[in-house]
Amino acid sequence: MDIRQAKAILEKYRTGNCSTEEKEMVEKWYARLVDTGEWEWSDGEAEQLEQAMEEKLLLQIKPTEQHHSRKYFIQRASRWWAAAAILLLLAAVTLFFFYGARHNNQHSLSQVQRFKNDILPATQQVVLTLSDGTQQALDDVSNGTVTHQGLAEAVKKDSSMIYNSPGNTSEEAVVYNTIATGKGRTFHLQLSDGSEVWLDALSSIRFPTSFPGGERIVEITGQVYFEVAHNAKKSFKVKSGKQVTEVLGTHFNINSFNGEKIQTTLLEGRLRVQSLASANSGMMDPHAVIISPGQQSIFSPANAQLTTLELQDTDEVMAWKDGRFRFDGSSVKEITDQLSRWYNIDVVYKDTITETFVADIKRDVPISKMLKLLEMTKQIKFVIEGNKVIVMKY
């Protein structure tokens, strides 16, 4: 097979007109590239074929109507194919450049000029606050025992803190610690009861170093994922703003970044969600909701209103824990809010962007990778200036 025939098969693949054998052949080419970085053709032919794949397969932008707003996404044949496309994108392949009006302004700059001051993920500190108010930057602490708090021992292991305490603690032994992440950082914590906690960037958790008594209570800000150790005799409660979430043993995610709503997503087990005021009153809250796996509660602090919805999948919610950005019909503000927490950027909007977007990319890449992916829709453009990202219509 020569390069001309290969390009013809790619075109048929793009339009959905190839045979089963041809489809398998194209996916074999990609698998070989992803696994080994090699082609079956000579260097010159390989370069032509790679370019053809970019032009015919990676740049297929398909607009659709959804809830009266336009939603743009890169057309992909499967989840596997999406992964292959992203890998090629991350290989720093130049996709295209924009040539606008012939004026000396931000809109007319080429993509290379607009992204020349690229930004890497932020590396702010993770800070441990002890019961007496003393703060320690955990990045500066070596692995091993960090401190003794009450009867508990706090041990650092790479990007984790593990609290160990004897089972016969008393009320007097309880002291509180706080762990807070900076921008561009995540952190793992194991509580003294064995429960595991993952903090997203710019998040915090305040927790007792041991859990005497009949319940376990922690307080969080930002976004935190829990895998709670089951203990039928001690309920586990999470306070997040004006909301209280109660569990016995379960896996769930709480996102309280948006001050207007708190989103609680259940992956496994069962949750009861209610307002903090109702929980403190000790009375049964008639507005409390019980959510099951695959459901999400949305709490409005302004009026203590709780609603629930069914999620088709939880991949978008949990992408942060897997080290990815994933957006599925997200507004540009929802996207840039996440980018701001991860890259420590300020965002300036030159134009109003009403479109929504789909994207999936690793979090450990320079910000230009995500911006280029969004620009492929030809609906939005960006300029990087220092630590500022300017958002414009295409």
Rank of each mutant, 00 (worst) to 15 (best):
S170Q: 13
D158G: 01
K237N: 05
G133R: 01
R326Q: 12
V391G: 10
S278F: 09
K56W: 11
K393R: 11
A122K: 08
E172M: 06
F382D: 02
S340L: 11
F211V: 07
S110M: 08
P212M: 07
N105H: 12
R363K: 15
A85Q: 15
S170N: 10
L191Y: 05
V348C: 11
E375M: 15
I384Q: 13
N344G: 06
I291D: 02
E27I: 04
D43T: 12
T209K: 00
M53E: 11
K369I: 11
V365N: 12
F207Y: 15
F252Q: 02
I384T: 09
A137L: 09
E45Y: 01
D200Y: 05
A101K: 13
G259I: 07
I9Q: 10
I119F: 11
M318R: 09
G100W: 10
A85W: 04
F257E: 07
W80Q: 13
Y13N: 04
I179D: 05
Y72L: 08
V238F: 02
N258Q: 06
N104E: 14
V348F: 06
E40F: 01
Y72Q: 02
L33G: 02
R324T: 06
L138A: 03
L271G: 06
K333V: 05
V93P: 00
E47I: 13
V93Y: 10
V358S: 15
S340H: 10
P301H: 00
H103Y: 13
L128V: 11
Y72W: 12
D200A: 14
K381G: 15
H68S: 12
R270A: 11
N105E: 15
A173E: 10
S300K: 13
I290M: 13
E227Y: 01
V175L: 14
P366G: 03
N17H: 15
E171R: 14
E38T: 12
L267V: 11
V348K: 13
L49P: 02
F382T: 07
S170R: 09
E227V: 07
V289T: 07
R70H: 10
F299Y: 13
S110P: 01
V358R: 03
S235E: 11
V146F: 05
S292G: 05
Q274V: 09
S108E: 13
Q296V: 00
D322R: 14
I3A: 06
S131T: 05
P166F: 00
H148A: 04
G214C: 09
A201G: 08
